Simulated scan of single mutants.
Amino acid sequence: MENVKVGIVGLGRLGKVHAKNLANLVPNCELYAACSLVEKERKFAKEKLNVTLTYDSYEDMVKDPNIDAVFIVSPSGFHCQQIKLAMENGKHVFSEKPLGLDVEEIKETQKIIQEHPDQIFMLGFMRRFDESYRYAKEMVNKGALGEITLIRCYGIDPSDGLESFVKFAMNNNSGGLFLDMSIHDIDLIRWLSGKEISKVWAIGKNTAYPQLDEVGELETGAALLRLSDNSMAILVAGRNARHGYHVETEIIGTKGMLRVAQIPEKNLVTVMNDDGVIRPCSQNFPERFRQAFVDEAKEFINCILENRQPEITAFDGLQSTKVALACQESFEKDELVEVNNNDSK
């Protein structure tokens, strides 16, 4: 296989990030096709990315024999069905997180993936490809921090997107704050610690937009997690960071601690003026994790070319989703919730 021909479904904000990377920055990859219900997005793919074909039907795209792999960047509720269709049509599959919104549907999807061992499947937990997080993982693995006792994660979107999210939430199901946003942090906790999460207790509050109470959504939430070895984790998720996109992770161990991105710095520039000393901040996730998105796409293509499965699996998607849903349940019921970890890999 000289070049892997890829078809992408979904050309929203994240879809465009992936599409541009696949078209311009990933070796041995050809962005061959793009699928969207929106004519403007199909036109963008044709004119700006020079894709060979555009589709308004995903079913038609995955039947194209010229396509080797699909990138699924559609709304979360479509992921499981689209993975199934792609697998049944012999395609390798990259799917953005979450794997799905329903645990039983995810389990069925996991079975389908396992029934096609010659096809590559990869889930989009891009933080595992970020240079800083990979360094933190290396430190943990070599025992530099000793035994982990606590992991703290912040994931807060910039406030300039909150109003548009409120409009979306009044008519659509995002899966809830913890599934929509904290799932990256949940995956990091599992990846960094090597442990499963056994119990969660979550709380939250809507302040800027109390109307989110009506649809069971949150603008700010927090959760306390117990891991299988009784170590702890704290999640803070939100949609209202005034300074920009704020992602921060702290790992505390018996021999030391480390912190990733205490300040979400955009670059190495420091501005000194009448407002004081200012460090510019990343304003969104495509900017903060620009290289990580490229590197995860490279890994997917390399896995296809080298005929090997990636480290991130459907099981990772299942476990992270279970924890996120447990956090949502805990918030809604205002009680401690146990996470069922009896499912096999």
Rank of each mutant, 00 (worst) to 15 (best):
D56Q: 09
M272N: 13
A324Y: 01
E88W: 05
L224P: 02
M139K: 13
S330R: 08
D157I: 01
W201F: 11
V323I: 13
Q262C: 06
P158R: 01
L235K: 01
D118P: 05
G276E: 09
D102G: 03
P75N: 03
Q319Y: 10
I67M: 09
E2N: 15
L225V: 05
S320V: 00
Q319N: 14
L235I: 05
L336D: 03
D102Q: 12
H79E: 06
V236G: 06
V103Q: 10
E96M: 03
S36Q: 06
L22D: 00
Q114F: 07
V6Q: 09
L101G: 02
G161W: 06
L218M: 11
A86M: 04
L224K: 02
R308W: 03
A23T: 01
R308N: 06
V269H: 11
L318C: 07
F94L: 08
F129H: 11
L99N: 01
E47S: 09
S36I: 07
G244M: 05
T207Y: 14
E329D: 14
L101V: 12
G12N: 06
L188W: 00
E2L: 10
V247W: 05
E41T: 03
E219V: 03
F168T: 03
K333M: 14
T54N: 04
R308G: 02
D274E: 14
E39K: 14
G143S: 07
D68S: 05
I106W: 09
P158F: 01
L37Q: 05
L218H: 09
N89E: 05
F315L: 09
V73M: 13
I112E: 13
R242P: 07
N3E: 13
K5E: 08
S320R: 00
E338V: 02
E335R: 15
L150W: 12
N21K: 13
L14H: 11
E265L: 08
T249L: 15
Q283L: 14
V140H: 00
L31I: 06
E338M: 10
G176F: 08
N342C: 07
N302K: 12
V103F: 15
H79Y: 09
Q309P: 10
D275L: 11
H184T: 01
L37E: 09
E2Y: 07
E163Y: 15
T54C: 10
L258Y: 06
M1F: 12
Q283F: 11
P27S: 10
E250C: 07
D316E: 06
K199V: 11
